[in-house]
Amino acid sequence: MMQFRDIEDQYVEAVVALWTACGLTRPWNDPYKDISFAREGANSTVLVGMSDDRIAATVMVGHDGHRGMLYYVAVDPALQRQGLGIEAVRAAEKWLGARGVWKVNLLVRAENEKVRGFYEKLGYEVNPVLCMARRITG
């Protein structure tokens, strides 16, 4: 079983490269800003799992005091289908549980059926809610 720990400065570039390789980055989301923001407070972090001194898996995890959220769940493409994604999700759930958070939410792009199936196998289900968003700029 892989051990996950909080990201350290020297791993930021490797984490962004992994997220890019996994197709998780989007032009409108700056992954460096996301990592920095997640590391600023006690309610969020980026967890990294190492294999042979390199980043094998990641998950950004946080909570608002009521519900947890998962983002950027990624596994090195060369290491996929070995259970590391499951380990990343479970590490994030453990991180949340240690903080008293009892429910976790995540967002999956509607067209990403493969990833949706992955989470369904882990017991996640679609909730009958509407997710609304607005960018705050200023």
Rank of each mutant, 00 (worst) to 15 (best):
M2P: 07
Q3H: 14
R5C: 03
D6W: 02
D6R: 05
I7D: 05
D9R: 05
V12K: 07
E13K: 12
A14F: 05
V16R: 09
L18N: 06
W19T: 04
A21M: 12
A21H: 13
G23V: 06
L24H: 11
L24F: 11
T25K: 01
T25H: 03
P27Q: 12
P27Y: 12
P27D: 14
W28R: 09
N29Y: 15
D30H: 13
D30I: 05
D30M: 10
P31V: 08
Y32A: 08
K33Q: 15
K33T: 12
I35A: 08
S36T: 15
F37P: 03
A38I: 04
E40A: 06
E40Q: 12
S44T: 01
S44C: 05
V46S: 04
V46E: 06
L47T: 07
L47D: 09
V48K: 01
G49A: 09
G49S: 11
G49K: 05
D53Q: 15
D53F: 14
I55Y: 14
I55V: 15
I55N: 13
I55K: 10
A56R: 04
A56F: 07
A57V: 01
A57E: 08
M60N: 14
M60Y: 12
V61W: 15
G65W: 07
G65D: 10
G65R: 03
H66W: 10
H66S: 06
H66A: 06
R67E: 10
M69G: 10
L70V: 03
Y72R: 12
Y72W: 11
V73M: 01
D76R: 03
D76P: 03
P77W: 13
A78F: 13
A78D: 15
L79M: 13
Q80I: 01
Q80N: 11
R81C: 03
Q82L: 02
Q82E: 07
L84G: 05
I86E: 12
E87G: 03
V89N: 01
V89A: 02
V89R: 02
R90D: 13
A91Q: 09
A91G: 09
A91P: 01
A91S: 14
A92D: 07
E93F: 06
E93C: 04
K94A: 15
K94E: 15
W95L: 03
A98F: 11
R99E: 00
R99H: 04
G100W: 10
V101E: 00
V104K: 01
V104P: 00
N105Q: 10
L106S: 01
L106M: 02
L106Q: 02
L107C: 09
V108H: 12
A110N: 13
E113G: 06
F118S: 01
Y119S: 08
Y119P: 06
K121V: 00
L122K: 00
L122F: 01
Y124W: 12
E125I: 01
N127E: 10
V129P: 00
L130T: 14
C131V: 04
C131Q: 09
M132E: 14
M132P: 00
M132K: 12
R134K: 15
R135N: 11
I136Q: 15
I136K: 14
T137N: 14
T137M: 08
